[in-house]
Amino acid sequence: MGVCALFEHRTSIIEPRIREGAGEMLTEGLVVVHECLGEKEQRLRRLVIKGPIAKTAKPGQFVAVQVQDSSISSFDPLLRRPISLAQISPDQDEITLLYRIQGRGTEILARACCGERLSIMGPLGQGFSVPKEGELWLIAGGIGIFPLYALAQDALARGLTVRLFWGGEHQRFLESAGLLQWQALGIPLHLSTLDGSFGLKGLVTEQVEEQLSLLFGQTKQEQPLSGGSIRIATCGPKKMMQAVTELGRNFGVPVEVSLEERMGCAVGACLGCVCTLRDEAGTLIHKKVCQDGPVFRGEEVVWDVSC
């Protein structure tokens, strides 16, 4: 893999093709970059795809990519893989997907070469809401960082103040998963690692709490503070997002979370990926992560049931 020198040549012989009748929701995207992200052991990949999706996609949305070895027609693995958009470049008609190889599907996807075409559904789902003004705090755990980069770029382009809290296993992970790109944004970074090899040792949520306390003083759950113009967007392990939601509630800061669930159809038809929410009347309801999400308001999510 790696940036493909043949790319310019290949585009000239393969015309972009959209299947008839699909509108632009099912497209065959051209792989223009597919490379190892950071050190090999982290099994992270960067996949840049050319296609019309970039024109309409929003941060927090995702695509469903067919993961088939194009040289052998097969229905194993059967399903598409949902992958969040890490970068949206409408001017270049490019989207960037960052992913970790962690199963058969992503292993096969990792073999896709530059110049190949991948069948892609999207952009899918409801993304993050970008506030008109004020401050946006991004809180990521592990590879939950990936969709937040597109959001950071969008928010900065709109003149918002952005800061990032990011926790990972160790320094090598953070560096592999895009630390340099984040540093290049020139925003405040609050980094932590589990082993203390970079940033503060501990959980990312500890730093979030510390910063909120510095700004608003200590708080108790019974008297939530008004978090002013701050908004939080978070993606990462469920327990982390739950803790962030709790902090948001205590300090009066609205939190949006990006949920993950095993998906079937990715369009809301099969009900495979539901999460449990509490509606305004307090009733437990199901929403579809693929269609109603993946981004939800943290406070409506019922964390201990099924989501």
Partner: peptide
Amino acid sequence: LGNEVPRLVETPAGLLN
């Protein structure tokens, strides 16, 4: 409301739901 998640698992050339 149906069952709790996980509701799906991919199997060789198949899907359990």
